[in-house]
Design a protein around this nucleic acid. Sequence first.
DNA 1: TTACCTCGAGATCA
DNA 2: CTCGAGGTAA
Length: 751
Amino acid sequence: MPKADPASRVSELRALLHRANRAYYGDAAPIMSDREFDDLLNELADLEAAHPELDDPNSPTRRVGGEPIKGFTTLPHRVPMLSIDNTYSREEIEVWVARVRKAVGSGGDELFAGPDATRFVCEPKIDGVALSVRYERGRFVRALTRGDGEKGDDVSHAARTIAALPLLIEGECPDVLEVRGEVYIPLSVFERINAQRESEGEDLFMNPRNACAGTLKNLDPSVAASRDLGFIVHGRGEVSEPFGDGHAAFCEKLAALGFPVGEHRSVRDDADGILDAIAEIAALRGQLEYAIDGVVIRVDSYAQQDALGVTSKSPRWCIAYKYPAERKTTKLLAVDHQVGKTGKITPRASLEPIVLAGTTVQHATLHNYGRVRDAQAYDNGQPLGERTDLCLGDTVYVEKAGEIIPQVMGVELPERHEDAKRIRPPESCPVCGGTVEIEPPEANENPALETSRRCINPECPAQIREKLIWFAGRKQMDIEGLGESTIDQIRATHLAVDDPARAELGVPANTPRIPLDHFADIFRLPEHRDALLTLDRMGEKKVNNLIAGIEQAKSRGLSRVLAGMGIRHVGISTAKALCKLYPDLDALLKADEPALRPKTLKKEHAVALGYPEDPKDRPETGLGALTAPAVHAYLHSDSGRAAFDALREVGVDLTSKEYIERREPKIHSPFSGKTVVLTGTLTHYERTALSEILERLGAKVTGSVSKKTDLVIAGEAAGSKLTKAQELGIEIWDEAALLNALAMAGIETPA
DNA sequence: TTACCTCGAGATCA
DNA sequence: CTCGAGGTAA
């Protein structure tokens, strides 16, 4: 072989190996032997090592794992990753199909005409980890976990090692293509890994699902590479241009590009067909290389999907039929009574440990005292249709609701001991000993109505603790470094020096009291730096992180503060809704009670406040005629006012980001409100990085040029998109103009 | 609710 | 190296 220049040999090898990968995993038709493949891969790895300038994150060598990365970054999903509604019965499937048909049939459009026009795609629901994989111009750019549905962790380093996922798509595909699917560890691989771990004396993995999640979260990609993760496509995220008119067509197109789409997908016309598919897939269960926990059914046509739309948490065009949860018996060892952040007391069961759906269960919430009093009685596994009080020592049936939260379903009555002790709601607060109220109030006359009890002592240490934990939590103020146990440890400085609990939590006798009772105390913790440093396992680094976390939390904005305060009826969505109405706390405090609930106002009142006549056009706050007075009362109560004053005093931002965003949707910049398309090669920016910057500056970055495009940024060697932009007479900037505009917006050009 | 990963802290050993 | 806290997945 003539001594080719390394760059061209490298790209030749990469192309060859990509093709081989695709043939192997996509088409299941190898074009070379494993031995040849390994040889070529080794040659490529050697060349890359000798010529670091030729490095490429999408090189096939990355399959075997490169350098560990430093940590995760969290990035937004361009299209949110919603969850799917679950059903457990055939009847619910029929009801859903009928509802879909009714909604779709009423479209009036020819596309939606006639009930038979709706088709349903059924596929196994894999029990793995959801992943959204983004390709730009056919190149793998990143993979995100589901996260909260809005943003997820970047696990590209691990996802690149998934052999079934192409790093380079060969063939025509949209400029932006987000493929969503399920990552899993094949069961045979799981067994192999555990066998190996056993022989090396390591702890075994409990189940494939958690092992898979852990693998993705491992910072060292060679770990993921060695675990042979599998992937099966089940949906799409952002796709820049039409790519199939429905789910089935989309899957076929992806299959043609070499994506693993799963082979047990079928298209059905009606509820009976769906039930057949469910039965067929059930018959496959246990023969597949991955665990499945049900069947996903979705409306095939994208047009119909769009017509059906989504609710706040899940699409109306998709539903999961889940297999019945695994159910086992175990012994009820004890019940403790936990005091929540609002004082509500919840019974929690301690159980003799059992393995259920791949995890060891030893605790289960009992939800409320109604369930404790009216537990379902069973005889030899059969429900008796009668109710009984739960007793200590009972043999109870446990299953996992939604495969996650264990629940006590009932009692095996014949197994009960004669002298078994009934579980009763506590007569006083189990933590502070204070007065408890019975709820609902009618239950004072008729105990059969009682569902819960509430500790009404505002100084109850348990309530204070839970309030602080909630406030600092990720979905509220997100104070890094201030978790449950750190809060306990700091609050243990309030204990007497000879209290054994103090030493147990690692608080030396000479540590002075660090105040931590009110939300505002959190923001004064930096003043107690020296005291914090004396605590066990609290070093320089942790304290610095904590202080930095506290500082950052100050500027989360009013909605997070309101949601964090644990005001009854005010969660994050209500808080955000209120914040869209009022620019800051003072404005909110000036509002009268009806102004907090525009939806339920009488017409005249609404119009007087400047809202539309039709309630449907008024903003939703999540508050109604019953809840709004309670919220209003809290905001103006002594304790509410004191809490707000204290937060203001320590410098917490009490202005409303939501209101400001609504009023001025974007930062003012040359890109505000513009739809921008990037094309060609830019020398100073990665495309994704630039997209993020432009979006921060108010631009909408899209993949293809259309009439709606305001601006095209054309780098070197721009192709058809530039031509099209010229045809349409759209403003075009070169890279120099871009850099200039970014500089004006205060963004420096990277080196 | 549990399992898994990462990180920092502190102990242990060279 | 081991422990435990913190974070996140289902």
